[in-house]
């Protein structure tokens, strides 16, 4: 119980204020969501240039209309089995807070589902999985929609600069 409260106060705005529109997507059998205001665009898979000395989940960089942006593979990031890309594989381009400015990052997901409005009262704090080793820091909360659970991601944490930087300096 105490962990749940801690997580509740951890989320800066509390579970209240998390309600809103989410872009939902799938990774394997699980449904995820990211706040729609974070999403810049959704593009199909494209050729990715690998960048050395980066964590394995960083697939490389792509050319987004003349801008070079990094792309991460969410499956690897979350410890899921990698799988072949297919025609449903997408890159969701999100905007996150960098060191001094916002930067764009692509996230490879299995498929994009829909945009859902999830009200405050349908969002629960992330459960504590305890010993399973799953880090719930990336999770804003759990949205319940029509009997299904959507895992709402905190993208600023998912692609934290510190983590990448640490790796680069290793």
């Amino acid at each position: 119980m105490s962990t749940a409260t801690a997580a509740r106060s951890d989320a800066s705005t509390g579970m209240k204020g998390l309600g809103g529109k989410y872009l939902t997507f799938t990774l394997g059998d699980e449904d995820y969501g990211v706040g729609i205001l974070k999403v810049r665009e959704i593009i199909g898979m494209m050729e990715i240039t690998a960048v050395p000395h980066t964590p394995p989940y960083v697939k490389g960089v792509i050319n987004l209309r003349g801008r070079v942006i990094p792309v991460i593979e969410l499956r690897i990031k979350f410890g899921l089995e990698p799988r072949e890309y297919d025609e449903r594989t997408c890159i969701i381009v999100v905007e996150v807070q960098g060191a001094s400015e916002t930067v764009q990052v692509g996230m490879i997901v299995d498929s994009v589902s829909e945009v859902l409005a999830i009200p405050d009262e349908d969002i629960e704090p992330p459960p504590a999985f305890g010993a399973s080793g799953l880090d719930s820091a990336n999770i804003l909360g759990m949205g319940k929609v029509k009997g299904r659970v959507k895992i709402l991601l905190d993208v600023d944490r998912v692609v934290s600069r510190e983590e990448l930087q640490q790796f680069a300096s290793m």
Partner: peptide, 26 residues
């Protein structure tokens, strides 16, 4: 071009560029 704000100071890589075929080259 820079590799986007997140990927800075990668040892051995000064930046990226768009090659003639539209892909990124380091």
């Amino acid at each position: 071009k820079s590799l986007g704000g997140l990927l800075t100071e990668i040892p051995g890589v000064a930046g990226g560029t768009i090659l003639g075929d539209g892909r990124v080259g380091l």
